[in-house]
């Protein structure tokens, strides 16, 4: 069976983005060939730690895609990936499900005829056919989709699979795949790019635990941040909270913001409007704290507390600290 490509999303210092480890874990089960990493050489090179980690996960090759054009532009990167598919004979690309990778997938689909599935949470081969699981309609339906084309591009959501190391670690071979981008692909210019500063907390999109605040916080996220820190989780927010300017727009959870499926979601002062539910309903366990017993979020909560978050949340935080010793 042919090799499989995994796009290695990374930070500006060459560290792997968290969900990439899940992609490699999934990729190993889809082929008895090699798992090849694709590294867009956008100024950052793979760090020594990243290469060690990739080796432990079973990545046999890392292809650095380099170009005279700006590989941060998805239209450009797509041309490099097309070349790499040809060069390696790989027929499948896995990438993290993000807006920029959806753009990349669209270009690949047009260029290669690939079938694309976005927001996947499971992958398997059934009699040679790639079958992809995903939830749709704001997490209320589950589907299984077969990819019918020779080339498949699957974008996988974070927290879809538990990361596991390969049976035997390898030392990945690092190679360069240089390509010349077409004039057409280079028409988009990145005038400015500002990386979001690190918060010291896990990335919202891939965190295992997310503490979310809504209108009920009335703008004070202090207690929620303390709870998140005790849990080692990320802090998210509803559209109302970000529109009010209580927290940055990058914290917005919802269909048009960050879609999350953590192991544990805790919503405080969150009513559960459909736009918000669309971004979090696939979470493992849902906890809700709200003064309004009729809040729609209670319809999907595993553990609901009708109560005031300003007393319940600090009590929860204190009790968790006590239990942790």
């Amino acid at each position: 069976m042919s090799d499989i490509l995994v796009l290695l999303d990374h930070t500006s210092t060459g560290a792997l983005r968290t969900p990439v480890r899940e992609l490699v874990t999934l990729a190993r089960d889809l082929t008895d060939g090699g798992v090849h990493g694709v590294w867009a050489a956008d100024g950052a090179e793979p760090s020594a730690d990243a290469l060690t980690e990739l080796g432990e996960l079973g990545v046999t090759h890392v292809h650095r895609l380099t170009s005279d054009a700006d590989v941060r532009v998805p239209a450009v990167l797509a041309e490099g990936v097309v070349g790499l598919l040809d060069a390696t004979g790989a027929r499948t690309l896995l990438a993290v499900s993000s807006f920029e990778n959806k753009e990349l997938a669209a270009y690949l689909a047009v260029a290669t005829g690939a079938g694309v599935v976005t927001d996947a949470d499971a992958l398997e081969r059934v009699d040679g056919t790639l079958v992809v699981g995903k939830t749709v309609f704001a997490g209320t339906w589950t589907t299984r989709t077969a990819v019918r084309t020779p080339v498949a591009v699957v974008l996988v959501k974070a927290n879809s699979v538990v990361v596991s190391p390969a049976p035997a670690a390898v030392a990945p071979q690092v190679g360069e795949h240089a390509f010349t981008a077409s004039a057409g692909a280079s028409r988009v210019r990145v005038v400015e790019r500002t990386e979001r500063p690190a918060t010291g907390r896990p990335d919202l999109g891939s965190a295992h635990i997310v503490v979310t605040g809504g209108r009920g916080t009335e703008g004070d996220f202090t207690a929620l941040e303390e709870l998140a820190d005790v849990l080692g989780g990320a802090v998210g927010a509803t559209r109302v909270a970000t529109d009010e300017g209580w927290i940055g727009h990058d914290a917005q959870i919802g269909q048009t913001g960050v879609t999350i499926s953590p192991r544990l979601y805790i919503g405080a002062g969150v009513s559960g409007a459909v736009h918000h539910r669309g971004g979090m309903q696939a979470s493992g366990t849902i906890v809700a704290i709200n003064t309004d017993p009729d809040a729609p979020i209670f319809e999907i909560a595993d553990f609901g507390v009708v109560g005031d978050l300003t007393t319940v949340v600090p009590q929860l935080t204190a009790e968790l600290r006590r239990l942790k010793g």
Binding site: V287, V305, V312, A318
Partner: peptide, 18 residues
């Protein structure tokens, strides 16, 4: 699914659940 109304100890009960 569990739904409780806070009577003063909901935070403690929630911690126990988690």
């Amino acid at each position: 699914r569990v739904l409780v109304t806070d009577t003063g100890d909901a935070g403690v009960r929630l911690a126990a659940y988690l």
